[in-house]
């Protein structure tokens, strides 16, 4: 998922108000921007929605990396449309975050100077065309696992953003799987690319759900507030259960010798990803952290004169009728 390791904020609000707020959440009410909410709820949501938005934005880069090399005109249009969708997701989410009293520019600055994070997955490189398949199939697939339940999250603007986003994400996943099918059933070189893509993206995809959070205080608070709907392990299990048969269908091998169906639990047993690697990536030591952040900063810095120019022109236009009087 696109929001990892979200720390929930402690709340020091009036206990009576807090109890009434919790009662609304428990009753399944939707919280709207004008409603009273605990400071911790607001701050945690800003962090979570912001990180989700940043992930959509940075997530454009690994796939954008292949747009100019897409092998056919049709593949090029599909990939263009996908990356464009991700920009749109970023925009919906920034708008949702703005209802909590933080501006898009503030959030962007926090991404650019490293105060806010984006999903670890986008710090991995896309090295062959099969990666465009693997990203859609696995990364969008993992994102959906988390985002579908979030359509019922307690915060109205976030839930509504999720409804719009989920429709497009499942489309992305199918398109990714379609690329994998072509590759897995293609020439020897294409099959090799497909297997290699699965090898590289399998564990980073499992990491997307974050480490086990069974005993996490933060998770418990977020679940109480209904801004986190399932535990990380639950979602990871669901993802493996869905994905392993798909890999078999493609004739590809999941790079986990311990992956096997467990009749008793009605799900697969599987190996955990290397959590040291995960924390390294979060600390900025993933294969592409430096490039991703540098690229975001470059685009933002080089775009400054454009944003200023557009604003200056808009201001002149607004001033015109008054000047004419």
């Amino acid at each position: 998922m696109y929001a990892q390791m979200i720390k929930s904020e402690a709340t020091q609000d009036d206990p009576e108000k807090l109890a009434a707020f919790q009662a609304r959440i428990d009753a399944g009410d939707t919280i709207e921007p004008k409603d009273w909410m605990p400071e911790g709820y607001r701050k945690t949501l800003i962090r979570q929605i912001g990180q989700h938005a940043h992930s959509e934005i940075v997530g454009q880069l690994p796939e954008g990396n292949w747009i100019t090399r897409a092998p056919t005109l049709e593949r090029k249009t599909i990939l263009l449309a996908k990356v464009q969708d991700e920009a749109g997701h970023g925009l919906y989410l920034y708008c949702a975050a703005e209802t909590l009293g933080v501006s898009r520019d503030e959030l962007t600055e926090m991404l650019l100077d490293g105060r806010m994070k984006y999903s670890s997955i986008f710090n991995y490189p896309t090295l062959t065309w099969a990666d465009m398949g693997a990203v859609g199939w696995l990364v969008d697939g993992a994102a959906i696992m988390n985002q579908v339940p979030l359509q019922r999250t307690s915060y109205g603007p976030y839930a509504r953003a999720m409804v719009r986003i989920c429709k497009e994400e499942s489309f992305h996943q199918r398109q990714g799987f379609d690329i994998m099918m072509k590759m897995a059933n293609g020439t020897a070189a294409q099959r090799r690319m497909a297997q290699d893509a699965l090898n590289r993206f399998w564990y980073p995809s499992l990491m997307m759900f974050g480490p086990s959070d069974q005993d996490s205080v933060h998770s418990a608070q977020s679940m109480k507030w209904r801004i986190k709907m399932n535990s990380n392990d639950e979602l990871r299990q669901k993802f493996v259960d869905q994905t392993a048969p798909q890999a078999a269908f493609l004739g590809l091998t999941v790079p986990d010798p311990d992956l096997c169906w467990n009749e008793e639990k009605g799900g697969y047993d599987f190996s955990q990803p290397d959590w040291d690697e995960f924390f390294d990536v979060l600390r900025g030591n993933g294969p592409c952290n430096t490039e991703r952040l540098a690229e975001q900063n470059r685009a933002w810095d080089e775009g400054k004169w454009v944003r200023e120019g557009l604003m200056a022109h808009a201001a002149k236009k607004n001033a015109q009728p008054i000047a004419a009087e």
Partner: peptide, 26 residues
């Protein structure tokens, strides 16, 4: 135009530029 993807000066242009590219490739 598609070379701009994800690198536009403002998010709205990250949405508008691929639209133009999509139309032209179509």
């Amino acid at each position: 135009i598609s070379e701009w993807c994800g690198k536009a000066p403002v998010l709205e242009e990250d949405i508008a530029l691929p639209n133009i590219a999509l139309d032209l490739i179509g």
